[in-house]
Structures are given as C-alpha cells and as structure tokens.
Nucleic acid binder design. Sequence first.
DNA 1: TATTAGTTAATGGTCATTCATTAATAACAA
DNA 2: TTGTTATTAATGAATGACCATTAACTAATA
Lengths: 202, 202
Amino acid sequence: MTGRKKGTERRDLILSRASRLFWERGYAETSMKDIAGACGFRPANLYNFFESKESILHEILLIEMNEIVEPIRHLREDEGIDPVSGLRTLIENHLRLTLGEKRSSKLLFDVSLKNLTVPHRKAIIRLRDEYDAIGTAIINRGARKGLFSPDLDVKIAVFSIASIIARSRIWFSPGGKYSVDDIIDFVFRFALHGLGAERKRG
Amino acid sequence: MTGRKKGTERRDLILSRASRLFWERGYAETSMKDIAGACGFRPANLYNFFESKESILHEILLIEMNEIVEPIRHLREDEGIDPVSGLRTLIENHLRLTLGEKRSSKLLFDVSLKNLTVPHRKAIIRLRDEYDAIGTAIINRGARKGLFSPDLDVKIAVFSIASIIARSRIWFSPGGKYSVDDIIDFVFRFALHGLGAERKRG
DNA sequence: TATTAGTTAATGGTCATTCATTAATAACAA
DNA sequence: TTGTTATTAATGAATGACCATTAACTAATA
C-alpha cells in the first residue's frame, strides 16, 4: 500500500508544507509530526530527505530569502537605473512576496534565526545583509543625485522600509479593504516622501 | 532553610524575570524551569502565584501594552494639541519603551498572541486597537488642518509607523552607532515626511 | 539485485502541571 | 509574653503528554 514518488518531488512537498506550517504557527510550535501529517506520511520518513528539523527551517529561509534578493540584485551596482524606480522595484518585489500565497500572521524571519545552527544562521544573515546593501546603494545614489534628502541616515531608512514591509504580514488581510497593489502604492509613497523626495502637489 | 518573601514581591519578581526571558528567547522557547531558575526557586513554586504559563505571558503583555498606551491616551480626544507634536509624543514614548532596558531581538507582541486563551487575547488586542485609534485620531486631525497629505490612507500609515518602531528592537544595538534619541529623531522625521508634511528646506 | 520511499516501534528527553508535604511567618488568644 | 492556629512560600516527586530522532524492517521500483 506504500506509494512512491521521486526524491526531489518529495523534498519540495516537505519544504512547501513545512513552510506553510512554520509561517502559520511558528517554528517551535510546529512538530515533525505536524509536517509529516501535512505531507501524508509518518514523521520518520522526513529523515529520509532531511537531516533534521533545523535543516528544513534553514532550507526554507534560504529559498525565501533568495526569492527576495535575487530579483533586485542587479539594482545594487547599476548606476543607470533611476533611484526612484529602483526604490519602487525593491518595495514592490518584497511586498508581493510577503503578501503572496503564503500569507500568514507570523514573522518567521525575524524570530526563527535563533533556531538555526551558527553556519546556517550566517548563510541567512549574509542574504539579509545583501538586501540591506541593495537598498542602501539605491538610496545613496538618489541622495547623490539630489532626489532624496542628503542628511538622512540611509541605514536606518532601509531598516525602516524593510520593517514596514515585513510587518505588513501581520495586519494585511487578503480579500479585505486593501489590495496588494494598494499597499505597494502606499508604502512606495510613504517611503519616497519619508526619504525627503519632493512632492508633486504642495 | 526555605526563605520567605511577601507575595506581591514574588509576583513582581516572576513577571520581571519571565518578561526578560520571553523577550530574549521567545515564549515557546522559555520553560517554566527557566523562569523558576531565573527567580532562584523550583518550577512548582510558580503555581503558588500564577495559574499557568499562559497567564504569566498574559499579565506581561497587559502591563507592557498599558505602558505604551497610557501616556498617550489623552492625545486621542484632545483637539487642542498640535498634531505634529502629538505624533512626536506617540513616536517618542513608544520608542523609548521599545528600546529601553528590556531591549532584545525578539518580537514578543507580534508573535505570542496566539499562545493566549481567547479572552486574554481579546484584552491585549483591545489595547492594540486603542493604540491604533490614538494614532489615527492624531493623523486625521493633522490632515484636516492641512498639515498632512489629505489623500493618504490613515490606517496603513499608523500600521507603518508602529511597524518601524516595533521592529527597531531587532536592529537597534545600544552603545552602538546610534542613540535612542537618534532613532527617535529619524523616525519622527521619516514619518512626518511620509505623511506628506511640508519640509522646511526644499 | 540495489535502491529508496515508507513503515512501526522504541529511546531518551523535556515539558507543564499536580500532589503531598515542610517550614516559616502572621494572626490571634490566653 | 507565651501558646495555638491559619496561611503561604517553597520543596521533591510523580504524571502524562509530546518531542525529535534512531533503528530495524517492508515493499515498491528501476
């Protein structure tokens, strides 16, 4: 009666179901039994595909962090791109991923880093630092061009914008008053003005 | 050999030590043994002062949420107060509490609501809603007076500002490059401009 | 035949909580 | 002041549940 599927297929299934559970309930509150159950098999079988619970978390964070960073990586060095539309791209990409299918009310990234082993944690933090560097580069370029306020601390600005986005998970309810595009428009305008850009209408 | 202290004194000790642990490690990652150990006695003794682990969490959240809301409660109705300085007061009070002594890298509020029983959760959410209502009132008043942009969604604006503050816990490091006052100044300016206030220097 | 998805059962651990008990203090009576 | 009782801080030990992980095994497939 035991069916069989290809290996990578099973890995993907586990990652996807575990991701959903981690986001919904949190890492500590999700058991291997829960994950196995959501996949339709027994806990022990998970160990045929992953070393440990922690390694599942690590792989999920790695994948999702890469999804955030990869589409905007080119914005870091490219001097030709308008800083304002660079900012818009960063915000839009990050928000679409944050409020997309896997929507939930928890903050997996913020909270679960401590559950990782040191090398695993370093790998995730490297990506987070890259995100920060991209945002910093865009804003610095804008400030140099006189588009943004010159005396604003850029590091805190990037943290602030990322915070609004990351935490939108908590209060956003799909099908509610606001669409994802509404949020994108708002956050873009809020950030743009926050950075000191001129307003079109006084 | 068993010493004795007054009851409320012990309750306060437990709340203070548990709060620190919850903020540092998270609720699920903190055991009753940990809390008892931090207080200098055995787990069983905790049940002489609290009904359960969950009730400890609830009381902590209630106290700390009240600390945030109480000092700004009067701003909700008071029409006489300048909206800009009202905004400043809200941000400053919230940030000082967020980055104060109990500084840590976790987001207790955001994450641990699910660990509460329904009535306990409702009590906390009522306070969170009150916070939102205060912020909304201030910004609405400012928009009516022409100080802030008239076509900005006020609800999302309040969420955004609160998100920057709540999440500053994660990246702020005391004794580092920035002081708490630096952060307050930044967030105030960022929010003020984000809301569409005129800038002093173009 | 070799591989591997999947199983059951067991291991050792931790967890929150309860119970019965001890001992120190407070409250009160004589 | 002394003796008595009630209260309560604090304990050790036990309970039952759940946890991540391992080992030994089965069965389908390539």
